[in-house]
C-alpha cells in the first residue's frame, strides 16, 4: 500500500500527530463532562436517559391534583441531569455525524498503519461500531429498559479503546525506532 505512516513524509506524520493530540484532548474533556453530567456507572447512565414513564403508573382517568409543602432550600437541591426524548433526538442528530467524521479520520490513520488487513478491518469496525453502540444504548435505555445503559458504557469504552489503540500504534510506528527496512 502506498500510504504508509512509517515511511510517510515528516509533515504527514506531524499532521497525524496533531490530529491525534487534538482528539485526545477533546476526549479527556469529554470524560470530564461525562463525570459532571452522566457518571460512569450503569445506574447513573440509566438515571440520565431512562424515561420516567417507565416507572410511572398509567395516566389517571381524570386529572388529579396533589399538594405538598416544600422548603426554600428544597429548590436548591441538585436534580439529576436528565435527557428526555426530544433532547436525545437532537443529540443524536447533532452528534452522530460528528462521531462519524471522527471515526473516519481515525480510520484514515488506520489505513496508514503497518498492520494486517484483518487487524485494519477490525479496528475500522471498532471505530464505527463504538458510537453506534453508544447511541443504541441510550435509545434502548429510554425506549426499552434502563438495563441497556450498559450498552452505552460498552460503546464508550469501545470508543476510548479504539482511539487508544490507533493513537498508540500510530505514534509508535511514526516516531518510535524504525522497523527493519525502514529508513528514518
Amino acid at each position: 500500500m502506498l500510504y504508509d505512516l512509517q515511511r510517510a513524509d515528516v509533515r504527514v506524520k506531524w499532521l497525524v500527530t496533531c490530529l491525534l493530540a487534538t482528539f485526545g484532548v477533546a476526549y479527556a474533556f469529554g470524560a470530564w463532562m461525562v463525570a459532571l453530567y452522566a457518571g460512569f456507572t450503569p445506574h447513573s447512565v440509566a438515571r440520565t436517559y431512562a424515561t420516567p414513564e417507565m416507572t410511572m403508573p398509567m395516566p389517571p382517568e381524570r386529572t388529579m391534583v396533589t399538594e405538598r409543602d416544600v422548603r426554600l432550600k428544597d429548590f436548591a437541591e441538585e436534580t439529576p441531569h436528565t435527557v428526555d426524548r426530544e433532547l436525545l433526538v437532537q443529540d443524536t442528530h447533532v452528534h452522530l455525524p460528528m462521531y462519524g467524521v471522527i471515526a473516519a479520520a481515525l480510520s484514515a490513520v488506520v489505513l496508514g498503519l503497518t498492520v494486517s488487513q484483518r487487524t485494519g478491518l477490525a479496528l475500522i469496525t471498532l471505530l464505527f461500531a463504538a458510537p453506534w453502540l453508544d447511541f443504541a444504548g441510550m435509545w434502548l435505555t429510554k425506549l426499552v429498559a434502563p438495563g441497556f445503559a450498559v450498552v452505552t458504557l460498552v460503546g464508550g469504552w469501545a470508543m476510548g479503546l479504539g482511539y487508544t489503540i490507533v493513537a498508540g500504534v500510530a505514534l509508535w510506528q511514526m516516531w518510535g525506532p524504525p522497523a527493519k527496512g525502514v529508513h528514518a
Binding site: F29, H95, D134, G156, Y163
Partner: peptide, 13 residues
C-alpha cells in the same frame, strides 16, 4: 486510557 475511553459520552450538553 480511562480518559480516552470514557470520552464516548461527549455528546452530553
Amino acid at each position: 486510557v480511562l480518559s480516552a475511553v470514557v470520552a464516548a459520552l461527549l455528546h452530553i450538553t
